[in-house]
Every structure is written in structure tokens, then in C-alpha cells.
């Protein structure tokens, strides 16, 4: 796990600026009653200023764990076996809690999955956002200034500022999601992590929210990490895409490249197992089997039991993430044999 190799692959997709955030060889396991779960396996990626990255994969692939790791909010039974997370050069993993607290929200903020429950029902929305402001901008912000700021944030996300003194249960689902975004932006963080920003929302609201996020990102120039299971949606909003499987990165690269020409069988399966509204209707190739039990992952490449291209080699040797071009890297021995999704038989 040489730094040069990881940096190169991590930079696949070509950003020019020096990275704001670097995740380098992160390996984490959870200690549970039934044994150790290998939640994150040697994950590396970088994020530059103003860039957006999508982490895509099935449930349990480790994407949410990565998000928690970035914020230092991993559960008590998590053990870091290796790697670093560098924010502008500083390793966050080994910071004492009191220091980490200063970075939370101020530098890295999160828009939570299922925003419904991110709100405490007994306090108003304003109070809860003001809380974040008080912690990080404490001395320099008076209450009236805070109110003005929250008002501005509300307008930015498309909410009526007068609603800020209401309680969470008085907001609709979509409104709560926007409010969560507003809260995430409150301390002007450098990085925002959007964890499943569109799950549990209807399609129209989904679209609106994603557009809004993109617009805000452009306006404010922050970096975003999108976490989702929906590769099609994320491919449209993120600059780069990382496909995760069983705790590791299967493929990473520029969104359009990965989406259009996947070089990992898993990415290919993701793309060909769901129909697309746009374009012709093609034969679907559903993915058989289940994601592996992370208590006891299979040897070699974790995907090999379900992989149509698998050989004996795949069961023994785990393929490293290899740079295939300037904007794509894949962890597969047979990356060149991955078919083009457009070769799927057109049905109509």
C-alpha cells in the first residue's frame, strides 16, 4: 500500500488542485458479539476544493461507515486497523476528542439520511441550528446575528424564514430535508457529506433537492461527498464516482466514464440490473446472490462468488485498485473484459 500508488489511483478522475481531504488506506473493523466485522477495507480517495464525489454501493458496503469515520463518530466498538484521514494535511483519526469536536460541523458537516429523525422534537428548528452556531462561532455571534444567518440559510435552501421558530413536526418531509441542509451549511464547512439525501422522498422532491445541492455547491464552492445506493442519480450530480463493495472500493473515476464505460463487473451489474427511463429498454441482467457476510468475507476478490467473469485466480488473489487511465481505476483482474452496458440487447 504505497502512498504514490494510492494517491494516483485516488486521484483518478483528474482533479487538478491539491486535495482538501485525503483518505489513505483506511481500514476499520467493528468488534461484535459474533466476531469482527470488516467494515472498511483499505479505502483511499481524495477530494479537492469544490469537487463532488459519489460513494455508491449496496447496503452494508461500508459507505456510511466511511462517512462516520470522516466525522469521527464511529461507534464504540470500532477499531481502526490502519490508514489516515487528512484534512488539509492534519490526520483526523488520531486527534483527541476535544480537538475533533472543533472540526465537526465547522469543517465537515453532514446531511443525514432520513432527515425526519435528525431533529429533536422538543426544540424549534432555529434553536437547533443556533446550537451549532453557538458552539463554533460562539463569541462572535449574538442572537440577532444568528437569527439573520438562519434566515439567510433558509432562503438559500428555499424555505420561508418565518418557519424557523416552528417545531420539526410542523414541517413536511421535504421541508425537513431542506432544513437539514440549511443546518449543515450553517458553519460554512469545507466539506459536506450528504448521506442518502434522497431516500424516502418522492421523485420530484428528490430532483429538486439534488438540484439545490448542486446549485449551493457551485455558489459556495464547497466540496460534497454524496452517499447513495442509486448509482444513476449520483452519476448525474457528482464529478467523480466511487463504487464500493464489501468495504472496499471496486471502481473509482470520473462519473461519466464510470457510468458509461464501467471497468468492474460489479459496477456493470449495478448499471444493467435496473432499467433506465431514458433510452431504449434493454435486457436486464439481475445480480444473483447476496453481498458477503462481513464477519467472514470470502478469500480473494470479495465479489468473485457473484461475478460472471470470475476465475480461480479471483478466489485466491485479491486484485488491487489499478489505474486504468487518467480518469478511471478498477480493482479487477479482468477489467478489460467488462462489457459495454450499451451492448445489452435492446428489447424495444
Amino acid at each position: 500500500m504505497t502512498t504514490t500508488a494510492t494517491t494516483t489511483t485516488a486521484q483518478a478522475g483528474g482533479q487538478r488542485s491539491s486535495p482538501l481531504l485525503e483518505v489513505d488506506g483506511l481500514t476499520v473493523r467493528y468488534e461484535t458479539l459474533r466476531g469482527d466485522v470488516r467494515a472498511i477495507e483499505d479505502v483511499s480517495f481524495t477530494l479537492g476544493d469544490g469537487e463532488s464525489l459519489g460513494l455508491v454501493g449496496e447496503s452494508g458496503c461500508g459507505k456510511s461507515s466511511v462517512a462516520l469515520a470522516l466525522l469521527g463518530l464511529m461507534p464504540k466498538n470500532a477499531r481502526v486497523d490502519g490508514g489516515e484521514i487528512r484534512l488539509e494535511g492534519q490526520d483526523l483519526l488520531r486527534l483527541p476528542e476535544s480537538q475533533m469536536r472543533k472540526h465537526r460541523w465547522n469543517d465537515i458537516a453532514m446531511v443525514f439520511q432520513g432527515a425526519m429523525n435528525a431533529w429533536n422534537p422538543v426544540y424549534t428548528i432555529f434553536t437547533q441550528i443556533e446550537e451549532a452556531l453557538t458552539i463554533h462561532k460562539g463569541g462572535s455571534m449574538t442572537r440577532s446575528e444568528a437569527r439573520r444567518r438562519v434566515g439567510d440559510l433558509f432562503e438559500l435552501v428555499g424555505l420561508d424564514p418565518q418557519m424557523m421558530d416552528r417545531y420539526p413536526h410542523e414541517f413536511s418531509g421535504g421541508m425537513r430535508q431542506r432544513a437539514v441542509i440549511a443546518m449543515a451549511l450553517s458553519c460554512e464547512p469545507r466539506v459536506i457529506i450528504a448521506d442518502e439525501p434522497t431516500t424516502a422522498l418522492d421523485v420530484i422532491v428528490q430532483d429538486r433537492i439534488l438540484r439545490q445541492l448542486k446549485r449551493i455547491q457551485a455558489e459556495l464552492g464547497m466540496s460534497i461527498i454524496y452517499i447513495s445506493h442509486d448509482i444513476a442519480v449520483i452519476a448525474e450530480v457528482a464529478d467523480r464516482l466511487a463504487v464500493m463493495y464489501a468495504g472496499g472500493i471496486a471502481e473509482i473515476g470520473a462519473s461519466q466514464t464510470v457510468f458509461g464505460h464501467p471497468r468492474h463487473p460489479y459496477s456493470w451489474s449495478l448499471l444493467t440490473s435496473t432499467p433506465s427511463i431514458k433510452g431504449p429498454l434493454r435486457t436486464l441482467a439481475p445480480l444473483a446472490g447476496e453481498p458477503p457476510d462481513l464477519h467472514d468475507p470470502p478469500p480473494g476478490c470479495p465479489f468473485h462468488p457473484r461475478c460472471p467473469l470470475a476465475t480461480d485466480r479471483c478466489a485466491e488473489d485479491k486484485p488491487p485498485l489499478e489505474l486504468l487511465s487518467s480518469d478511471q481505476a478498477s480493482a479487477c483482474w479482468y477489467s478489460d473484459q467488462v462489457p459495454d452496458p450499451r451492448e445489452q440487447e435492446v428489447l424495444r
Partner: peptide, 9 residues
């Protein structure tokens, strides 16, 4: 919301 509170620092 407990996780959210922690995330806020």
C-alpha cells in the same frame, strides 16, 4: 437526533 447532535460538535 443524538447522532446529529454529536455531529454538530
Amino acid at each position: 437526533f443524538v447522532l446529529t447532535a454529536r455531529a454538530k460538535g
